[in-house]
């Protein structure tokens, strides 16, 4: 037991080092000053007031949430279908298809952003909700395909045979047996996709317009104009949303484990 203590201290230090930059933002958002000086000398909620009083900040937060939620759903559905084809299918070009679907994760985001911008100009998708959905979904797909393919490749296919011989068509077997069994993989895929979209800046900068932008885009442009602790408040909100999401997912997973 006692020999574990150094290990625990080391682990705690690593964890602290990983999250410290993020955690610093939280006290900053409660500062009473007009600067991002750390540590704050006075405390107040005025930057949250400033955030929620400014219709543009709130609008961008809502945009981000909507886009991220929809991207999460789209990427999970499309990514699951793609993973199923990639793990089960026997067709020519399966390897190429898999590599292409994972590519958005590997291609430098700036390069991807330029390409998407050029394409979207042509298609008149710049600054549109649809444009954000499409671009973010493509970026999020690998983050669904990787966990879902991994649970699918471990999935025992005799369960599908068992469902079939019990009278379930292929579709019913998929929805009644395969999907519930691989659900944890889908859940983490959804979360990754949501977060990928929710804090995406680079590509979003290319495709946003004065009429439609997301929270990270607004934060990025605001920090270039004036250093205003409102963005610390915005950042803290982002941390809260993503942490809440992860907490819900972890809770769901641990409940699942307890039941089975």
């Amino acid at each position: 037991m006692s020999r574990r203590i150094p290990l625990k201290i080391f682990g705690a230090l690593v964890a602290l080092w990983l999250v410290a930059p993020t955690l610093v933002v939280i006290p900053l958002s409660f500062t009473g000053q007009r600067s991002l000086a750390f540590p704050p000398e006075r405390w107040s909620l005025r930057w949250y007031e400033a955030f929620f009083d400014d219709r543009r900040w709130v609008a961008d937060l809502l945009n981000s949430l909507q886009i991220a939620a929809l991207v999460g759903v789209l990427a999970t559905v499309a990514g699951t279908a793609a993973s199923y084809a990639l793990t089960r299918g026997r067709f020519r070009g399966r390897g190429v298809a898999g590599a292409l679907l994972i590519a958005p994760m590997l291609v430098p985001t700036v390069v991807f952003g330029v390409g998407v911008y050029a394409l979207f100009l042509e298609l008149r998708l710049v600054g549109t909700f649809t444009g954000f959905l499409v671009a973010h979904t493509v970026l999020a797909l690998p983050f669904v395909i990787i966990p879902v393919s991994s649970v699918l490749s471990r999935f025992d296919t005799t369960l599908e045979r068992a469902a079939a011989i019990c009278g379930a068509s292929r579709a019913r077997a998929f929805f009644r047996v395969t999907l519930p069994v691989i659900a944890p993989g889908l859940l983490s895929g959804f979360m990754f996709a949501f977060v990928t979209s929710f804090d995406e800046v680079v590509v979003s900068l290319f495709i946003s317009s004065p009429y439609l932008e997301t929270l990270p885009v607004r934060m990025y442009s605001s920090i270039q104009r004036d250093v205003d602790p409102t963005i610390a408040a915005a950042a803290t909100l982002i941390i809260c949303f993503t942490s809440a999401l992860i907490a819900v997912a972890l809770l769901a997973q641990s409940r699942r484990r307890r039941v089975s």
Binding site: D156, T158, L159, R161, C166, A173, V181, A183
Partner: peptide, 30 residues
């Protein structure tokens, strides 16, 4: 005739029970 229309029962070597369903729901499945 696809497997789900063959009206056969099958016991698999590894049992192939549906892990997310209770005993009752497994038996009720067909």
């Amino acid at each position: 005739t696809p497997p789900h229309r063959r009206e056969m029962g099958m016991v698999f070597q590894g049992y192939a029970l549906f892990p997310h369903l209770s005993v009752w729901d497994n038996i009720e499945f067909p």
